[in-house]
Design a protein around this nucleic acid. Sequence first.
DNA 1: GATGAATGAGTCTTCATTCAT
DNA 2: AATGAATGAAGACTCATTCAT
Lengths: 216, 216, 216, 216
Amino acid sequence: MSDTRRAERREQILNAAWSCFQREGLHATTMDDIISASGLSSGAVYGYFPSKEALILAAVTVSLSGIRDLLDPLLKRDPLPPPETLLCEITSTIERFTERDGFDLKRIALLGWSEAQRNPQLRATMRGFYMAFRDKLAQAGRTWAETGLISPQSSSDDVSKALLAVILGFVVQAALLGDVAPAAIGVGVAQLSLFSQPSSRSRRSGRGQTPVREKK
Amino acid sequence: MSDTRRAERREQILNAAWSCFQREGLHATTMDDIISASGLSSGAVYGYFPSKEALILAAVTVSLSGIRDLLDPLLKRDPLPPPETLLCEITSTIERFTERDGFDLKRIALLGWSEAQRNPQLRATMRGFYMAFRDKLAQAGRTWAETGLISPQSSSDDVSKALLAVILGFVVQAALLGDVAPAAIGVGVAQLSLFSQPSSRSRRSGRGQTPVREKK
Amino acid sequence: MSDTRRAERREQILNAAWSCFQREGLHATTMDDIISASGLSSGAVYGYFPSKEALILAAVTVSLSGIRDLLDPLLKRDPLPPPETLLCEITSTIERFTERDGFDLKRIALLGWSEAQRNPQLRATMRGFYMAFRDKLAQAGRTWAETGLISPQSSSDDVSKALLAVILGFVVQAALLGDVAPAAIGVGVAQLSLFSQPSSRSRRSGRGQTPVREKK
Amino acid sequence: MSDTRRAERREQILNAAWSCFQREGLHATTMDDIISASGLSSGAVYGYFPSKEALILAAVTVSLSGIRDLLDPLLKRDPLPPPETLLCEITSTIERFTERDGFDLKRIALLGWSEAQRNPQLRATMRGFYMAFRDKLAQAGRTWAETGLISPQSSSDDVSKALLAVILGFVVQAALLGDVAPAAIGVGVAQLSLFSQPSSRSRRSGRGQTPVREKK
DNA sequence: GATGAATGAGTCTTCATTCAT
DNA sequence: AATGAATGAAGACTCATTCAT
């Protein structure tokens, strides 16, 4: 059997799995659900994925790759758009990913995060993905600092954490509340800080109860 | 049996449930796990909660109330601290909630969001909570606009969505990557937009691919 | 639930298991077979034995204890009957064990030996049992040598191995061919060696191909 | 395809089967195990053996033939060695069969006996083999009686049963306990009866509990 | 009210066998 | 003849829930 055919079958199964996972959640989906949806026999499915866990891992990994392939080009542009614009583009891309394939990436992400709590391999995969993504955001932060779009004193580490938080938070909020347009987030972030004081002052604003954060 | 005694028992069971849920996840936790952890008999537990689903719902609801009781006072102050400060206080409070009770609210949140995908009642409860919380954030946004801390033209709706995104995103990122100090997020957000142009201009920065967002 | 009641249930399940094992063999017997035969539900059976393997181990162990309790008294008598008589008594006892309980110990033994090949725990249990039994046979050999019933130069080790072989061989032969009366074996052994030369000569009879055996 | 080629393939498959059976047991060995070990495809294996059961039967039959080809010459000699010597030769031959081919005939025998309990065809094959072998032992018994090596009054039937028991018992004991040198058994049997009284007396020694055996 | 033994439908997974290529 | 992907009927085991004591 050709590699192409095998890859096709794997995708066929993975697609079936995703549509079930999305409808029922990761655990409430039974292998029989996936098997029926895939149109194959149980034995055939197990010939491609050795266990339900492997199927979940593969499904998450493939989703992660898919979204990375869409997001990476946005971050590699020269010149890089300013923060608010980039943010809008990222959230819009996430939103469009959903619309195109019929899979709601946002809901899927929530399922994966939950599962990662108790599946070490999945957790490792996810950590790897998000860490790498945040590194790219940090690079963007440095680029902005160099080109004067944000303060030259800014910490690329903090900036990347804030950016990632905003993006992940968009995903959660959109999945749970469903009334968040992709552009709203970028706009809101911009408005939020327009009149903020210089960050040197912010640093001092930490109160006793605020854990001291490591300087990078 | 007195109401007090009943309430005590319910809390005892709920605590047992949380510690199991946190360790194993919602689905991997069996009723026997909870029953053993609670120190009661299965019959007794079922005397207080009619089903596992009810137990999950109650557990989530209680957590949500707990965190609301902690966050509400922060939002009701007069004068209200500026955005970055407030953000730091909120993330710090979430972090401290974990430390104090031994329950990691962040991991728990992830479990709840996942479950809400397929449990309508849980979803409704969560929507209610987050909607109400976002309303309070919108109110804060209006206060800031009135007091000149942010632009008077800002949309309190966008601001509240951005704020909620940042907070939820902090939760996800901290749960998954574990290297995010509460203050880092607020600081990063502030640095992100320090030199941003007025939001009227931001609006125009959207490119073709960015869906036009509905004005509220 | 009282210990007595628990023990009763265990025996009820073990009896069901044995009647299935005997009919179908260890592996061809399904848990459902045993569950149906026991009159309990699957959950109940699993409440007493955590796995099929545990059930097999328990079943074999109980059989082994049963036969030991019957055989031990025969070996502890004073005065000890001569070899042939003892052999007949042992084989007869094995035969009667079958008749009384409706379980054919001989067939059961064959199943257990086979399973012991790939189940380390079962193998260890069996080794322990047969080693202990052979030790008692060796003791009998020493007693006979002391009382002049066999040669004073005889090796109790060899004698015990020969005795055990005869007994186990009776079990196999009776199970497979079914036409071996318990007494036939003892009689046959006696006739076999009646005119044998002194064992000093036997020692020399080993041919090149015969592995040299350790002297004890 | 030539008959020679077919026979070669069959042997190749049978060898693969034996090495799997020996390692895993009859039931725990899957057809895939055998197929992999044989280096052929599943379709090919099924071209030579119509089912797993047929493969087991063929494997056992071949083993039985192999050991018969080795043992028969020992029994057809003229003059026939005395009992103890013959016994040692037989056990040594069984032991050597193992060493030469890398297959432990003793472990294999245990598997086959167990399987014969529930496979009528296998049982019939085995009965045939052991009955025929015992007949040859009975013939040896008659020869010994004629040549004065054992009592002329001895029952060739009883003698053959005793001999077979000793041989089968050696197999079991060696497989389970592993510390039995082939010669030990013959020596032990000889020592066991050295000073026994004439068998006419033995007959009377049966006690109440010893079932009276049918005279043949 | 409390207990915890019992229930049994449902889950994941295996594996002997077939058959289109 | 050979291949090996596909089949699908079991099989072992789990676990939310009940109910007799």
